[in-house]
Design a protein around this nucleic acid. Structure first.
Lengths: 340, 340
DNA sequence: CTGAAAGCGCTAACAT
DNA sequence: ATGTTAGCGCTTTCAG
C-alpha cells in the first residue's frame, strides 16, 4: 500500500468531486476529446482546485512506458568519464534541455557488467537510450532483446538498424592536418585514445594521414593516451624528447589542454616551439592560454540532434543512414608557423 | 494495458513455474525470510533461468517510492547553469556515483515556475531532493507540503529543519585575503555573483573583509558579475581601468578563469600586473596558464556527502546543524607579490 | 511457512 | 458523450 493516507488527489477524487467517472478525468488529462466541453470545464477547475498532479509512476505502469531515457558514456577504466572530459557534460546539458521539453527525464548509466546494464534498462523500463562509443555485442544483444529504441553517437560499424549521429571525423582530421601543413609543419605528431572505447580517434588520424599524404608526408609520431587531461599531460614528456616535432594534433581538446599545460611547465613554448591543435571545441578552449586552435564539432547541436533523433526513434522513425555533422577549423592561438 | 504481449517475466510467471504464489516470490526478492530455504532456492533458480528483472515502476507504485532523487541547480537567468560552471558537473558526477550505489537514479530539474517544480517532484514521486542555492518561499512551501526529504547545499538562513552541507565560505574568503595580504597587496578587488542566486559570495566577501580589516585595509573595489566565464571575462575591462588594483579575489574559479583570459588579451600580465585568486578548485584550475591559485573546496567530497546526507534524510535522520567543510588555500601561479 | 487478495493511480477497451 | 472495469507488476496485510 501507499506510504501515508492520502497524500495527493487522484483522478478518483476529482471524479467524485465533479460527479463523473475516473475515465472522464483521464480523458481530459490526455486530451482525448471524448468529453463535452461543459464537463471538461468542470473537471479542469476541480483539478486546479484540488491541486491535482498526475502520478507518472501509475501512468508508466499502466502504459508500459516510463518517460525516462538513459544515456551511457563509454566506460573507460572505471573512471567517471563524465567528469573527466567536459565534452560529456556539455553534450548532456544540451541533450537534457531538449528532451525534457518533451516530457522525458534523463538518467545516466554507470554500468560495469552486462547484467547491470540489463537490470538498469529493464527495471526502469527506459523508453530510449543514447549510447556513446563502443559496446560489446553482449550489450547490444540485451538492448535488442528488450526492444529499447536507441541511437548511437560517435559510433561506426553500423550493423544495427539504428539512427546514429556523429561527425565527419576524417574530415576533421584532414582539416587539422591541412592547417598544420599550410603553416609549414613537416613533423607532425598525433595523440589519440585507445581504440577500445571509441573509434573516432582512428578516423581523425586517418584524416590527418590523408592530408599528410597529399604533400608526401606521413605522421611523425603516433602516441596513445587516455582521453583525459592527465593523458595529455603525460604525453608531453614524450614529445619533449622529440624536438624535431613542431606540431601535434590531439584527438580531443582535453588531451590537448593537458599537453599544453605540461609543455609549458617543461619550457616548451606554445605555439613557438610546438603548435597544438585539438578536437571538439570545448568551452575550455578559450579558458586556456594560448587559446586552443581546434576542430570544432558543434556540441550543443549534437546534443540537440541526439534528442531529436531519439524522440523519433521512440516513435519508430529510424534513419539508418548516419547523420554526419561537418566539423570546422577554428583557428586560435596555439598554432603558428614552425620556428625553423 | 501493457504495450505488447509478455515482454518480460513477472513474479507471476516465475511463481507459476515453481508452483508457488507470487507473494512467495516477492518475499525472496525482498529477503523477507518468510520462505523455506528449499523453495527459496527453487525460486531463485527459476528467476535466474527466466531472466527475471524487477519492474521498478510497479514497485514504485506499490510502495509509493520511486527510487529517484532530483537535483536542482540555481536557475540564474534561464541559462544552463549546469554547463556554465564546471562546478556543477563535477559535483553531480560524484553525487551520482555515490547515490547510485544505493539504488537511486538521479534526475535533474530544469524548472522555471513553482508550478513546474511541483509537477516535477510530485509526478515523479521523487524520494529526495538536493537543492543548490536559494529558492523562493513558495518553492519551499511546495516541498514541505509534499513532505519530500531534501538537503540544502550552499545554503544559509536555516529556517527549515533540514540537513545542509556547505563550506566555510567566510573562512575561505579570509584565507584568500590573508594570502594576498601576506604577498604584500594593498589594493584588492572582489568579484562576486548576484546575491539572488546564492549567498556564498557574500560570505566569501565577508571573509575577505575580515582579513583586510585586520591590517587596516578595506576592499578596493567590489564588482558584481554572473558566475560564468563571460562574467569574469567582462569584468576584466573594469579592472583594466583600475591600475592601482594589484590583486583580485573571485568568488568562483570560473569567473577567475574568464577574468584571466581577458586580462591577458588586454596585456595585463598575471601575476605580475595582477594577482588572481579564485574559489572552488575546479579541475580547470590546472588547465589554465598560469595555473590558478584558489581556495579549494573538495567538490568530490561535497558530492559524496550530499549523497550520504540525502540517504540519511530519506530515512528520517535529519541533522539540522549545517555540515560545514573547511576550505584550504591552494597556491599555484596566478598570485605573486605586487610589482610595486 | 505459504497463499489469496486488496490495493497503488491510471489507461483503454468495452459497454451503455 | 460518459461510465465500467480489467488490468499494469508488485507489496503486504490477513488467513490458513
Amino acid at each position: 500500500m501507499g506510504k501515508t493516507k492520502k497524500s495527493k488527489a487522484s483522478i478518483y477524487d476529482i471524479a467524485q468531486a465533479v460527479g463523473v467517472s475516473p475515465a472522464a478525468v483521464s480523458y481530459v488529462i490526455n486530451g482525448k476529446d471524448k468529453v463535452s466541453e461543459k464537463t471538461k470545464a468542470k473537471i479542469l477547475s476541480a483539478m486546479a482546485e484540488m491541486g491535482y498532479v498526475v502520478n507518472q509512476t501509475a501512468v508508466s505502469l499502466s502504459r508500459g512506458k516510463s518517460s525516462l531515457v538513459g544515456v551511457c558514456f563509454p566506460l573507460n577504466s572505471s573512471s567517471l568519464v563524465f567528469s573527466d572530459n567536459p565534452f560529456y557534460s556539455e553534450f548532456l546539458a544540451n541533450f537534457e534541455k531538449e528532451i525534457s521539453k518533451n516530457g522525458y527525464d534523463t538518467i545516466i548509466g554507470y554500468l560495469q557488467t552486462p547484467q547491470d546494464f540489463e537490470r538498469w534498462i529493464v527495471s526502469r523500463g527506459l523508453d530510449g537510450l543514447v549510447l556513446f562509443g563502443l559496446y560489446s555485442p553482449e550489450i547490444f544483444k540485451i538492448i535488442l532483446a528488450h526492444k529499447v529504441p536507441f541511437i548511437l553517437t560517435d559510433f561506426y560499424d553500423p550493423e544495427f538498424k539504428a539512427s546514429s549521429i556523429r561527425i565527419d571525423d576524417e574530415k576533421g582530421g584532414y582539416l587539422a592536418g591541412k592547417h598544420l601543413i599550410e603553416l609549414g609543419h613537416k613533423n607532425i605528431a598525433f595523440i589519440g585514445g585507445p581504440v577500445e572505447a571509441s573509434k573516432v580517434d582512428s578516423k581523425r588520424l586517418e584524416g590527418l594521414n590523408a592530408a599528410l599524404k597529399e604533400v608526401g608526408l606521413s605522421c611523425a609520431l603516433h602516441l596513445e593516451a587516455p582521453t583525459t587531461f592527465d593523458g595529455g599531460y603525460n604525453a608531453a614528456t614524450v614529445l619533449k624528447e622529440h624536438p624535431e616535432i613542431t606540431a601535434v594534433f590531439c584527438g580531443s581538446d582535453i588531451v590537448a589542454i593537458g599537453l599544453m599545460r605540461h609543455a609549458q611547465e617543461l619550457q616548451v613554448s606554445i605555439p613557438d616551439d610546438l603548435s597544438v591543435i585539438g578536437f571538439d571545441d570545448l568551452q575550455a578552449c578559450t579558458y586556456v592560454y594560448p587559446a586552443l586552435t581546434t576542430i570544432r564539432q558543434n556540441i550543443p547541436l549534437k546534443g540537440q540532434l541526439a534528442a531529436d533523433n531519439l524522440l523519433k526513434a521512440m516513435k519508430g522513425e529510424i534513419n539508418p543512414d548516419p547523420q554526419t555533422l561537418t566539423p570546422t577549423l577554428v583557428v586560435r592561438n596555439s598554432t603558428s608557423k614552425p620556428r625553423f
